[in-house]
Write a protein that binds this DNA or RNA. Structure first.
Lengths: 149, 149
DNA sequence: GGCAATTATATTGTGTGCAATTCAATTTGT
DNA sequence: ACAAATTGAATTGCACACAATATAATTGCC
């Protein structure tokens, strides 16, 4: 087997590991978030809103790297679940502002143990945790330099 | 802000980094694979088949950690694209055997430069590459120990 | 041999992701 | 001021993911 062919082996593919790890992590969140009535992407949106309540769709999209094609239906589901409200901003009617409801705010308390549970499930010590974070950031920076948004 | 609340900050979430990196990598593959007529999950299936031509759906699913709900329609699309054929195995009619077509086999040559292109786009030196791989494997092993298949 | 449990795949339903398009509101250039 | 360009969301269309269910074939057990 020559060098080019060796690159085509699944077990050599770092990218597959990232892809598989992402799905495995999602699976670990599922039972925890099900108790809150959230999916993992919905939980990420709530994280952003818990940090700063009023956000436009665009601002959410920038932080989560998701576009309106993903966020619009997701936000509608969160709205019909009663966790937030969407309304056109008066100062610029193109923008839709997302506001937490009381139920959405209250959910934060119920979610407060999720990060620790997940951290434990990851099985990493602090130094590996930060090393993994560093390497992922490096990969994202490189990849996005080649294929910009 | 107390400790529990600090866990709920997006920028502290390693899991978000894995999720975002996975999508960023997918985006990097897209233009390369578009030239071959493949999506990234389809490319992964082809990688497995290039290594070992005859596989059942179950065997593919084990290697890629994907179930029949994902693989069945994906394999049908690869079949109608002319890259493979699906047929019930005579010895056990519950199993569906996947066979590459000549076009599917030929695609391997066209894909041979993909791994090197992607490796370059990742911007990692060899030692970071293997370190990232090690950490991801560790995470997957831990996570799957808690939420088994 | 026959029937219950198991196995392999397919189907259904829900929820992302994302490219491409559409539409309305705003900003810009003159 | 006003037409053209830009912007922010929503919509459409397609392709995953995955839980839950259905179906058909096989295996085990008596």
């Amino acid at each position: 087997m020559n060098l080019a062919e060796q690159g085509l082996l699944l077990e050599q593919q770092l990218c597959f590991d990232v892809y598989a790890a992402s799905r495995a992590i999602n699976k670990a969140y599922r039972p925890l978030l099900e108790a809150l009535g959230l999916t993992y992407p919905q939980y990420l949106v709530m994280l952003v809103l818990w940090q700063h309540e009023a956000q436009t769709v665009k601002q959410l999209g920038e932080q989560l790297q998701l576009d309106s094609g993903t966020l619009s239906p997701l936000l509608k589901r969160l709205e019909s679940a009663g966790f937030l409200q969407r309304q056109r901003r008066a100062s610029d009617e193109r923008e839709v502002e997302i506001q937490l409801t009381e139920a959405g705010r209250a959910l934060r308390q119920q979610a407060s143990n999720v990060p620790a549970s997940i951290f434990q499930a990851l099985g990493l010590n602090a130094s590996d945790y930060f090393e993994l974070k560093r390497l992922l950031h490096q990969v994202m920076a490189s990849v996005e330099a080649n294929s910009p948004d």
